[in-house]
Amino acid sequence: MKILVIEDETTLAQSIGTYLSDENYLCEFAGTFEEAIYKVEAYDYDCILLDLMLPGGDGIKILEELKAQNKQEGVIIISAKNSLEDKIKGLQIGADDYLTKPFHLSELAARIYSVIRRKQFGNVNVIEQNELKINLLGKTVMVNDQPVSLTKKEFDLLLYFISNKNKVVSKGALAEHLSGEVADMFDSYDFIYVHIKNLKKKLHEAGCDNYLKTLYGTGYKWEI
């Protein structure tokens, strides 16, 4: 999978690259508007991460260019601007998602995963991992071909772990993922425990291996 990271802050671009490189993603970088336009026109990517404020031009123009060329890449805007207008504008022009800085790398990975799955697997969007089968469209989970009934939050968590497999994910990142903006209004993310406990229990009872490990007390890792 090839990903283009259009971001002028090199440290941020590189940490994104490092985080994603273990996941079969190959990252390329563009730090200026011209470089981005050149790469977008010359190559094909599976997903493009687009910062809107770039030296040399407005990132929205790159998005317009992509759409004008009828390119099929999934585009995720990563912007320092948390304004609804920008978000709506970006999504209207054809971005697939919008992520406001600062974000957790695990959240970014989950969004990339979801965009790529949606774009490339269309109707048969099923993730298979050993005995586990996840149908993304139907939102159903099977273990050894037996259905497991999960709540929406548990399903979301499972997907988040799968898209960050072999990565340590912090409780804070999970809370933010589940509750969106409101999560960061609180200090205690205790409610996460309950959902994770239930998810583990349900998968275990259905005969699924224990892939979800607890680390350092409050971190989690989907190990495979």
């Binding site: 440290t11 941020l12 940490s15 985080y19 600062p102 957790h104």
Partner: peptide, 14 residues
């Protein structure tokens, strides 16, 4: 401020 914050956040995640 958002950008340096994003850098710190991603570095911590790494």
């Amino acid at each position: 401020l958002q950008t340096p914050l994003a850098v710190i956040q991603s570095q911590l995640d790494l």
